[in-house]
Amino acid sequence: MSKRTFLVLVVVALLAAAAGYLWWRDNHDQLPDYIASGNGRIEAEEVQVATKYAGRVAEVLVNEGDMVAAGQVLARMDTAELRASLAAAKASIAQAQENVIEARAQIVQRQSELKYAEEELARAETLVAKGHISKQLADQRRTDRDTARAALEAARARLASTQRAVEAAEAQAELIQTQIDDSTLTAPRDGRVQYRLAEPGEVLASGGRVITLLDLTDVYMTIFLPTAQIGRLLVGSEARIILDAVPQFVIPAQVSFISAEAQFTPREVETRSEREKLMFRIKVKIAPELLREHIEKVRSGLPGEAYVMLGGGNTWPERFAVNLPPADGQ
């Protein structure tokens, strides 16, 4: 065999190998018509932990990257002024309660005075009937009785007023205590600290953000699919996620959201080709119980590809068989 013939055979073999690889790759990557795919990034639901009232940050107890549990204290606001106001409110309650005691004592006194005035009036009326005293003196006793009765009603009204003052003071104290309680910022749910947005000593306005949490049990990937595929997709359809960082793993998921409106919509859609270009936003969500099993491995922002099943009654190709890393702690 000549050298030239050998070189020709080598070139032909290389071309055949290249063609075979391209054919294998195209057929390996080609999806069945009942599976659609889109690129996206793993996202987790963000939870903003903010102060309800304006104030100074006293301490921040967590750092970025920390895992926190629901109810865990994340930060505290300075409550010195509020505690002083609470002390003043409690003093007002004590004063109002003393006024209630005094008002009740006055009622007892006025009741006694009224009873005495009624007895004096009864004696005076008896003596007038017998002619022992003048009618003018009996009228005076009647006036004393009416005055005592009015004083009793005034005392009762004062008691009601002082009781309302106690209620108002208690409500004020409860309000201040609520503000103090709200100054302790806790995690509303389990998650990971993504950002520490404020430091001790900073003065924040009402609603000022202190911590951003990621809820690692609410993780999804957003993709976009064209009109031709969106009509065959249902909420609840099966899905798979494969991340670029760990392509050996296939993560099961489910379609949780399909946008009712197209994205990138032209102002006027007049032709079929334009309608086919319309893209709809889809959310592919990972089951919370699966995320809890791998909570330490969950990372937001990782790029990858999501695959969704169009219609029903089909099965996933072998390369989309679920394959997960070991659960945390195993």
Rank of each mutant, 00 (worst) to 15 (best):
R141T: 11
T217P: 10
G38I: 12
W24N: 06
R192Q: 10
G231P: 03
G301S: 06
A105F: 06
K285R: 08
A18T: 04
T271E: 05
Q136H: 08
A18P: 00
K283T: 07
V8I: 15
A262Q: 04
E81S: 14
A117K: 00
E305R: 11
D215W: 05
V193K: 01
A84G: 15
I223V: 11
L121K: 09
R4D: 15
M67E: 07
Q72C: 12
A75C: 04
Y195K: 11
L15I: 11
A187P: 04
A151E: 09
P252M: 06
G231Q: 09
E120G: 11
L159V: 13
N39T: 15
I133F: 05
G71W: 04
L7K: 07
I211L: 08
Q95G: 11
P266N: 06
L214N: 01
Q30K: 14
R156K: 15
E119D: 12
P325F: 06
V193C: 01
R76H: 05
T217I: 06
I241K: 01
D29N: 13
R292S: 02
M221G: 03
V57T: 04
Y116R: 14
A88N: 06
L7Q: 09
A198K: 01
L204K: 01
Q248T: 13
E118P: 12
T162L: 07
R110H: 09
T184Y: 14
Q177A: 15
I35E: 01
E199A: 09
K130R: 14
G38S: 11
G304S: 06
A321H: 02
R141C: 04
A187F: 06
T5L: 15
